[in-house]
Design a protein around this nucleic acid. Sequence first.
DNA 1: CTTATAAACGCCGATTATCT
DNA 2: AGATAATCGGCGTTTATAAG
Length: 294
Amino acid sequence: MLELKHLRTIQGLAKFGSIAACAENLHITQSAISHQLKELEVRIGAQLFYRKTKPIKFTSQGQVVIALADNVLPQIAAAEKQLTHSDLNSRFTLAIDCHSCFQWLLPTIKQFQNTFSCLDVDLESGFHQHPLERLLAGEIDVMITSDVESRGDLYFIPLFGYELQLVMSNDHPLVSKKSIQASDLAAHALLTYPVDKRRMDVYNLFLKPSGCEPLKWKTVDNTSTLLQMVSGSFGVAALPEWAVRTFENQDLIATRPLGDGIRRHLYACVRVADKENDYIQAFVDMTREMNASH
DNA sequence: CTTATAAACGCCGATTATCT
DNA sequence: AGATAATCGGCGTTTATAAG
């Protein structure tokens, strides 16, 4: 039976003019080609080319094979390219768990996209019901989160640590305190992103343990507006340090540690199979660098 | 100098065995 | 049954060498 390798060697033979030259260019030995063609000729029961002619001349049967090779091989190459560069493989989808991640994530994504222009980098910020399930299903490649779950099918790559701080206007009554206690918030409005409080670090790690609630909860859907409102004394907010740094009027706001300081860590959650993936490694490295440069 | 042949090697896939 | 591991045999390649 005629095989792809036969098409390649016959085509190479026509192109390079001799068995030795063909072998050299196809990175196999002259002997192997000799064997291969002899075997093929026996199987199809016909001579394909005339030996000892320079350059090699083909029989009519040989020319049939060359024509076939010229037709089929480019099609194979095109199909391979299409398969390896399909949308499925070239899309790189990130998802985030926290609104404030935008602040450092967007520049990182930009750099990542520039480095890997062949990739279609996508960011999902909307809250989906089961982000981890979507990760396992391959709809998401990386999930940025601070909540580690120990399970065998997911892998959490540490990115960097950060501290959650209370942000307030610089003339806020709580500015006088060195650190903020949960009870201090009872008299003040707390500005948060519009998510369930049970998913908030400030609630789970700070308010809930001491059984306190703020005077009221106010929601804002983006960091920049949230900081504007904080600076305008509409309330206080608990934010990671990097989110606070982006505010343009630093002199209008002040930050204080929550209790003894709430330290958290961000992770890139990926499928175990993707642990060693080059793109993911590169993304993780860029993320760490981006954070270290601040 | 190019091609063919012989012997040996090593890879790959089929087959069988073992585990879940 | 399906998945994973171990075994084995065939076949193509290589190296070495002969022949045209």
